[in-house]
Amino acid sequence: MSLKTTLFATLAAVTLAMPAFAEGTIKVDDAYARSSGKTAKAGAAFMMIQNLGDADDRLVGVTSDAAARVELHTHKVDDNGVAKMVHVEEGFAIPAGETHMLKRGGDHVMFMGLTEPFEQDAMVPVTLIFEKAGEVEIEIPVDLERQDMGGHGSHSN
């Protein structure tokens, strides 16, 4: 085998192994989605995102066929004390070795223009897009009955 062939084979093997390795640096726990009812046009998802890697990463986007538009949102309080949801275009930093909470009343995934109502125990397919780890596909269970638990704050939607 020539040096060129050996290098090409090695490069191909490393390239194919990278997504699995990169994906393994991100762990998602305690995910759930909810909406305010069967006629709701919007919903939200919450979760704990752990960066198990040695390098900082950033959640920069999210996609799902569950809604016409899916964005990363947070709550901001204005000078009058009124909280409102805003799109976070730059995403959320996930420092190496740390956990970032997407929780009610804070950072979360927002679904706008739901394609179907969120029904209890249904699964919502979501792709989280990270700056370094790339795409991480997850299935998020719908839990319309969940109360404020596990460090998730309050969220009105």
Rank of each mutant, 00 (worst) to 15 (best):
T5V: 15
F8D: 13
A9E: 11
L11S: 14
L11G: 10
L11P: 00
L11D: 05
L16V: 10
P19A: 03
A20L: 08
F21Y: 13
E23L: 09
G24C: 03
K27M: 09
D30F: 06
Y32M: 02
A33R: 00
A33H: 01
A33S: 06
A33N: 03
R34D: 05
S35L: 00
G37I: 02
G37E: 03
K38G: 14
K38M: 12
T39I: 10
A40K: 00
K41H: 08
A42G: 06
A45E: 01
I49E: 00
Q50H: 15
Q50R: 14
Q50G: 06
N51P: 00
G53P: 01
G53H: 04
A55L: 15
D57N: 05
D57S: 02
V60T: 15
G61D: 10
V62W: 02
V62G: 04
T63V: 14
S64C: 09
A66K: 08
A66H: 00
A67H: 04
R69V: 09
L72M: 09
L72P: 02
H73L: 07
T74E: 13
K76G: 06
K76Y: 08
V77N: 09
V77K: 11
D78R: 02
D79G: 07
G81W: 08
A83H: 09
M85H: 06
V86H: 06
H87L: 14
H87D: 13
E89F: 12
G91P: 01
G91M: 06
I94D: 03
I94N: 04
P95W: 08
A96Q: 08
A96C: 10
H100Y: 15
M101D: 10
L102R: 00
L102N: 01
G105R: 01
G105S: 04
D107I: 08
M110D: 07
F111H: 02
M112A: 13
M112C: 10
M112Q: 14
G113Q: 10
F118L: 08
Q120D: 08
D121K: 14
M123P: 04
V126A: 05
T127P: 08
T127M: 10
F130N: 00
F130G: 03
V136Y: 03
E137H: 13
I138E: 06
E139Q: 14
P141F: 03
D143R: 09
L144E: 04
E145V: 12
R146N: 07
R146Q: 13
M149K: 10
G150C: 05
G150N: 09
H152D: 11
S156A: 13
